[in-house]
């Protein structure tokens, strides 16, 4: 075994704990040496700590710099701040990396989709600056900054280069929002000048949506402001098979948190019914981030093989296996190949 990694595990709530146990089973069996430190996050924390994200959890992530997170639920329309958004803000996890790649066994109408979305994660309409400016008018400030736009573009080009990608497009609505989206686009173009070896361009967000559903194979990497990124990354997830297979990473200069983007499905909690693949693929992204390529590739290959056989898959992909049975089948497949 190589170096031991200390990772914060955030099981979340609802089906999160059973998903994270299944994912841990697989990752621990991959040959990588990880010491997991469990911390609380999400609705279950409210009664115990009075917040969705306790300080103890923040301190542990600050120490370990890397975390794997299960799903959490954000209450709609109440005063509690989203744990996810708080994590991004507190650790300045400015790059939300959301790959959308076809999984061979999932039958889709397209031959090829292999897109990496780079969503700016901290600005835009998510700056939490909202006011009732009269009793019949609500206002939300869309905050776009030059340094914030510049660094997500810089991150995307560097990631693309390191991973052999060829083309990056900036998604925007600068024809209408000339100041805010205009600034985002200007910063992207400035960064693009420094990377002449990567093809770059821009596309208006509504056209991008239409092009994605008509011909997704034309896209390679997309850089998006926060709100368009939120929407288009789910659109891309839908193209390749839904949120059950959609991984994500939230990355800053000093910290990275890997998480699935689906909800916590509380109605299935404790039933060991749900598909843990999204968190598992997020875990594979985490292993690659930790430079544990061999372990990542081993899990990926075994997972695809189990999905392909369809003997031990969860209900959403036509099987009857429980969450932990699917995970154990992946472990068995890894050992069988060893």
């Amino acid at each position: 075994m190589g170096k031991q990694h200390v990772i914060t595990m955030l099981p979340g709530e609802g089906t999160g704990p059973e998903i994270c146990e299944a994912v841990r089973l697989v990752i621990d069996a991959s040959g990588v040496d990880i010491k997991w430190e469990y911390e609380d996050i999400g609705l279950d924390c409210l009664e115990k700590y009075g917040t969705l994200l306790p300080d103890k959890t923040i301190q542990n992530i600050a120490k370990n710099k890397v975390a794997l997170k299960g799903p959490t639920t954000t209450p709609i329309g109440t005063g509690h701040k989203s744990a996810n958004v708080t994590l991004r803000k507190v650790f300045d996890l400015y790059a939300n990396v959301r790959p959308a790649k076809l999984i061979p066994v999932l039958k889709r109408p397209w031959d090829k989709i292999d897109i990496i979305n780079f969503r700016e994660n901290t600005e835009d309409s998510y700056a939490a600056i909202e006011h009732m400016v009269s009793d019949e008018v609500a206002q939300c400030l869309k905050v776009i900054t030059w340094p914030g736009s510049y660094r997500i573009a810089d991150f995307a080009f560097k990631w693309a280069k390191a991973n052999g990608r060829k083309k990056i497009y900036c998604v925007h609505k600068a024809n209408i929002m000339k100041m805010t989206d205009g600034l985002f686009l200007d910063a992207f173009r400035e960064v693009a000048k420094q990377h002449p070896d990567i093809e770059s361009g821009d596309i208006i967000v509504d056209n991008c949506c239409m092009q994605l559903v008509r011909n997704p194979a034309q896209f390679d990497c997309l850089v998006l402001p926060n709100l368009y990124g939120d929407i288009l990354t789910d659109l891309c997830a839908g193209l390749v098979g839904g949120l059950g297979f959609a991984p994500g990473a939230n990355v800053g200069d000093g910290c990275a948190i890997f998480e699935a983007v689906h909800g916590s499905a509380p109605k299935y909690a404790g039933m060991k019914k749900v598909n843990p693949s999204a968190v598992l693929i997020s875990g594979i992204m985490m292993l690659r981030w930790l430079k544990e390529e061999a372990a990542a590739a081993r899990i990926e290959k075994a997972m695809f093989a189990v999905l392909d056989e369809r003997k031990h898959v969860t209900y959403d992909v036509g099987g009857t296996a429980k969450t932990d049975e699917y995970a154990q089948a992946i472990v068995d497949k890894m050992h069988a190949k060893a």
Partner: peptide, 24 residues
């Protein structure tokens, strides 16, 4: 006080936090 929507006073502030010259 917040910067780009993130609270920078009082409480914990990540040393990596990007801040601009505009504070709420």
């Amino acid at each position: 006080i917040s910067n780009r929507g993130t609270k920078v006073w009082p409480g914990f502030v990540s040393p990596d936090l990007l801040q601009v010259n505009w504070y709420r």
